[in-house]
Every structure is written in structure tokens, then in C-alpha cells.
Amino acid sequence: MPGQQPLAGLEGILREYQGRRGVLLEVFHRVQDAYGYVPPEAIEPIARALRMHAPTVYGTLTFYTEFRTAAPPRVLVNMCLGPTCHLRGAEAIRRILERRLQLDENGRSPDGAVGVHVVQCAGHCHVAPLAYLNGQVRGRLAMSDVVALAEEARFLAGGASA
């Protein structure tokens, strides 16, 4: 496919997996680690390397919530909405973030720089309610911490108010 400029390095990743089965999730993880998401232009080359049909590759890709098909926001807030976090106010926290960051229905700020996503419980309920700011855990969030969390996200996104 033409216009492969953002996919420099993809052939290198795929070389290890030529014709192998049972490696597609690993390939997606590797690609996402490299580019931050799985670019649609990667589907064809992946399909060719693994000798699969492109629609099957695409179908698998879109089944899993962890794989992104578009570039992630500069600042990613992952909020746990698991049961203990839920009991301890995660929903209100999410709604405060929604207002403070003026998030749209996809959880993005108007300039697209901050994204708030929902994650499930990974069993760290001892520090519930919790969120991850660019991967760093912020645990035992009190309602009064949330405004500061939103401000910090905005600051990391480039300071300009959203």
C-alpha cells in the first residue's frame, strides 16, 4: 500500500512472525507498543506476513478493547470503574473529570489532547478509587483531589486551558 511513511519498522517486527499461527495478539501488542496504536495501514502487511485474510485480522483487532486503531491522546487518564472503586465514588469522579475537562462522548477534551478512558478492576482495590495518569497510579482519590487531577492532566497536555 502506498503512503506507508508512519509504518517504518513494521517489516522488522513482522519478520519474526512470518507464516506463524497463534501470534496475532502478540503482533498487535508489538505494533501498538511501537506506534501507540495499531494503524489501519498495518492490517494488510500483518495479514500477508501471517498468511491470514485481512478482514479476519481486522475483526480480531477490533474485538479487543485494549487495541486502539487511532493515535492515543497526549495525556491519557485511565479510570477504574471496578466494583470497589464504584462503591467509593468512581462515577462521581468520572463526571467531575468530564465537566472539568469538557470531555465529549468519546472521553476526549475539545483539543483532543486529554482522553479519559475507563478500565476494569485489576485487583488494586486497596488503593481504590484509583486512576492512572499517563500510566502512573493515583490511588485513594478523594473527591477533593479530582480537580487537581484534571488540572494536572491539562498541564501535561500542554498547559493551555482546554
Partner: peptide, 8 residues
């Protein structure tokens, strides 16, 4: 072999 899931 270790297989890493993807959130489903």
C-alpha cells in the same frame, strides 16, 4: 508460551 490477552 506466555500469551498476553487484550481486555476481553
Amino acid at each position: 508460551q506466555v500469551v498476553r490477552g487484550a481486555g476481553a
